[in-house]
């Protein structure tokens, strides 16, 4: 068996907020086709890591290469065009648009109709919308969202909004999908649905996944590899089994429980 190629390479990434060291010299690779989980206690720097990959934050040091391209030097609007999509820990949908239009808005990067074409619409703009509507409808069907197709997402319950966010990310047709706690605030049944959708998307769309998740059982079930962050430091990396028995990881999580107590 040949090693799959490396899709994303995080090298020595450091990020400060004033005196808070959100990330210090974090490095890891994501291999094509794998599911990599990033875990760690609250405030460990997980979301900050994703924000660096999206180039929402610029690390003060280090580089992030996606298929050889340095994302820390790429405009944020270009990153989804390269094939990197994400969801947000605290929902970030376009709340005034319907489910359908949220997904259509994600097709933006694959569409060409400009200002004049939009104003005239008739002809090219209309045909292009129809073509992309078909792609979007496939995703709506895949995520079983037919009944909320025309519902304005601001009116949807939390669990469904999370699903629309996954749909919007899939509508970008990425190679790499970054999921920031896709199951928080969900009940058990919704969590199971979501896990199934994520695994199906991974398989059917041959996606590479980076998943941030607090539910340990789930992470251990579905991740190929796990990266553990604590106070901005990578304290461990390995298969779920290796992570489960890693003394540093146990200490970090025990420490967190003490902090909570």
């Amino acid at each position: 068996m040949t090693e799959p190629p490396i899709l994303l390479s995080v090298q020595d990434v450091t990020l400060h907020f004033g005196r808070v060291q959100a990330l210090s010299r974090v490095s890891f690779d994501v291999k094509e086709g794998e599911i990599l989980a990033i875990i760690g206690p609250n405030g460990a720097g997980k979301t900050s890591m994703l924000n660096c990959i999206s180039h929402f934050y610029t690390p003060s040091q280090g580089h992030i290469y996606f298929q050889g391209r340095d994302l820390t030097k790429t405009k944020p609007t270009q990153i989804p065009r390269l094939g990197v999509a994400r969801t947000f820990q605290n929902l970030a949908l376009y709340s005034g648009l319907s489910t359908l239009d949220n997904l259509m808005a994600a097709r933006h990067i694959h569409m060409k109709t400009g200002m004049l074409g939009s104003l005239i619409y008739w002809g090219f703009g209309h045909r292009e919308d129809l073509r992309h509507r078909e792609v979007v409808e496939e995703i709506i069907e895949f995520l079983e969202m037919e009944s909320i197709r025309k519902t304005v997402v601001g009116a949807l319950p939390h669990g469904l909004r999370k699903r629309v966010e996954l749909g919007r990310a899939l509508a970008l047709e990425p190679k790499l999908l970054l999921l920031d706690e896709p199951m928080t605030g969900m009940n058990q049944e919704e969590k199971e649905d979501m896990a199934r959708f994520i695994l199906d998307a991974h398989e059917l769309r041959r996606l590479t996944l980076v998943l941030i998740e607090h539910d340990m059982g789930l992470v251990m079930d579905i991740a190929d590899r796990v990266v553990v962050l604590d106070f901005g430091l990578k304290i461990a990396e390995g298969t779920p089994d290796e992570i489960r028995n890693n003394p540093d990881v146990i200490k970090a999580y025990l420490g967190q429980e003490h902090r909570h107590l």
Partner: peptide, 21 residues
């Protein structure tokens, strides 16, 4: 159209819009 959806995206969540291209 494409432009109108982009307008609303910017209105409703300019950060998400930017990260969605």
């Amino acid at each position: 159209s494409r432009m109108g959806r982009a307008f609303v995206a910017v209105r409703d969540n300019d950060v998400a819009a930017e990260l969605m291209g």
